Amino acid sequence: MGFDLASQRVSLLSLSRAYQWRSDTVLIRTCFSLFIIQNQNMNNIVEPGTAESSRLERFVHLLSCPRCLSTLDLAQTSLICQQCQRVYPILGGVPDFLSSGEGQCLADSLQGDAAQRMREEYLLEEASSTAGPKWDIKSVLPQIMLKYDADFRNGPARKLFEGDGDPLVLNVGGGPNRETPKEITLNISNFNNVDLVADAHHIPFADNSFDGVYSLAVLEHVTSPHEVVAEMIRVLKPGGYLYSEVPFMFFFHGYPSDYTRVTQEGMKLMFSGLEDVEVGMSHGPVSAVLQSANMVVPMLLPASMPVIRRLGAGLFRLLFFPLKYLDLLLRDHPDAHTVAGGFYVVGRKPT
């Protein structure tokens, strides 16, 4: 019988989920995840006419060396810097700017337990998108937090996608899902729906490349958010819009690390390089309290009873999630920002 990689990926992920309640979950799912990631990168050659080559063709002419910002020459399986001669491989249609030395710290950060949980979650999301949704207790529980603009394209971020033509938009931290079909996604690993692997502190695009740039809950995970913001502004065209969301009163979540929380005043300062800046709450105070309480409930239950801890957190969510709608009453309250769940910012690059 031949080896069908696609079917093996789905079956492995299904088996991983079936064993999620057992004590050896981490070991089993880690092995499966590493197997899948390795096989995703087996085919490094980009064949003309494939979906991978079509996506790469949309932005390859805008790429630049993250080390010296010089022009890159495209070879069949790599990109070569014209000035420093640095070589960046193309793995399965995805340029990889972290495999040549500069990304060693980021590569190391992907080896920890928190990073592994991130990989597992991303891989499970990918399996659901390709093989259809699978039942999971989280999928039937209501969200404990209310996001004021659930579809960010219909909220303040709509400015990125307005106007004539087909705007080219960069999603910094995108994957495993795309918020928009044609956006270009950047991440630190080759997850599903990632178009290039790179460090957001050194975005490998020429100045003034994109009509719009955005990031969703990314800046808390980078070591120098001000540098990342400066890079996002650099690759944005004059007159283009930048949108970003950052948590404030929100629990620690290592994806793969978690360093920063930003106040409303901090958002204004961080994005002061833009004009016409609008800062507002993405999540309100009640949502912040509910999320924190939902994290505390399992801590009050015995660590030796993981199923009971999960059931306790689920029961809390079922009982109290309706309270999140009180945030609708607080959206315009002058003091709500002091305990908000998170903030958004949208602004325009000066012309």
Rank of each mutant, 00 (worst) to 15 (best):
G165V: 02
A303P: 00
G101T: 07
R234H: 06
P48K: 15
Q143M: 01
D166V: 14
N177K: 15
Y243P: 04
Y243M: 06
V228M: 07
F210C: 07
I90L: 10
R17F: 09
T130D: 03
L330S: 00
H226R: 12
L123R: 07
P89N: 08
E231P: 02
V262W: 01
G93E: 11
T338I: 14
T263K: 04
V194T: 04
H283K: 14
A288G: 07
S33F: 07
R153H: 07
I90N: 06
R29N: 03
L311S: 12
V339M: 15
Q291A: 01
G254T: 09
V172M: 11
P167S: 10
R58K: 08
A114G: 06
E220V: 12
E183Q: 15
I137E: 14
E265C: 12
L242K: 04
G92E: 08
P176V: 08
Q291L: 03
V140F: 05
S64R: 09
R261E: 03
G132M: 15
T25E: 13
L236C: 14
Y344C: 10
F205A: 12
F59D: 03
L318E: 03
G254L: 13
V94A: 09
A206T: 14
T71Q: 06
F161V: 10
Y122I: 13
V228A: 04
V46E: 02
E52C: 06
F152P: 09
P66K: 14
A115Q: 06
H202I: 06
S129E: 13
S189F: 07
F343R: 13
M305E: 04
R9P: 00
A157D: 05
A115C: 00
P238Y: 02
M281Y: 04
L106N: 09
S109V: 05
S215A: 15
T185H: 08
D113W: 09
Q82K: 09
L79G: 06
